[in-house]
């Protein structure tokens, strides 16, 4: 609880000085359905952009988010992880990189997510590219931020 409160305070502080602010979290995962994206050291099982992630579960996955949502998440679930490894969530707004968030994976399966704080100027088409450390793309998620 204390950790969560501290995290929230830090998050609000950073959001005030630089937006969109990426955040991330990671935890051991539960299996979920989806098409696997084979890599050498991990397989992407699920990747979605959603309005919220609670207890490792994504909520309200969509391809268009209202700016009034305030914050959006990119949720990923990996399986067949061989060893500890980093992955990246590249948040890109209109072909211009907006945030690059490093997340860690642990064997054998792992869920992880990142998020950004939305501002008025963020309306428009976005994409999140999920890659490994070498730049290999697991998946690209496309969505829009709207009114």
């Amino acid at each position: 609880m204390l950790r969560k409160t501290i995290l929230m305070i830090v998050w609000i502080f950073i959001a005030a000085i630089a937006c969109p602010l990426p955040t991330h979290a990671q935890s051991p995962s539960r299996p979920a359905a989806g098409s696997p994206a084979p890599t050498s050291k991990a397989t992407l099982i699920q990747a979605i952009v959603c309005e919220d992630v609670k207890d490792g579960i994504p909520y309200n996955a969509s391809v268009a988010f209202s700016i009034s949502a305030g914050k959006i998440y990119c949720f990923t679930f990996f399986d067949s992880i061989v060893e500890d490894m980093p992955i990246y969530h590249h948040w890109i707004f209109r072909d211009r990189p907006s945030a690059r968030i490093r997340l860690g994976l642990k064997p054998p399966r792992w869920t992880t997510f990142s998020s950004i704080q939305l501002r008025e100027a963020d309306k428009g088409p976005w994409r999140v590219e999920i890659t490994d450390a070498s730049g290999r793309v697991f998946k690209i998620l496309r969505f829009s931020v709207t009114d």
Binding site: N60, A64, S66, R127, R142, S144
Partner: peptide
């Protein structure tokens, strides 16, 4: 190049665009 939809406007409060 890939084509991406540039959505605009607003859906009703209780609805969301799940897939496109």
């Amino acid at each position: 190049l890939p084509v991406q939809v540039d959505w605009a406007g607003k859906l009703p409060e209780n609805a969301l665009l799940a897939e496109a």
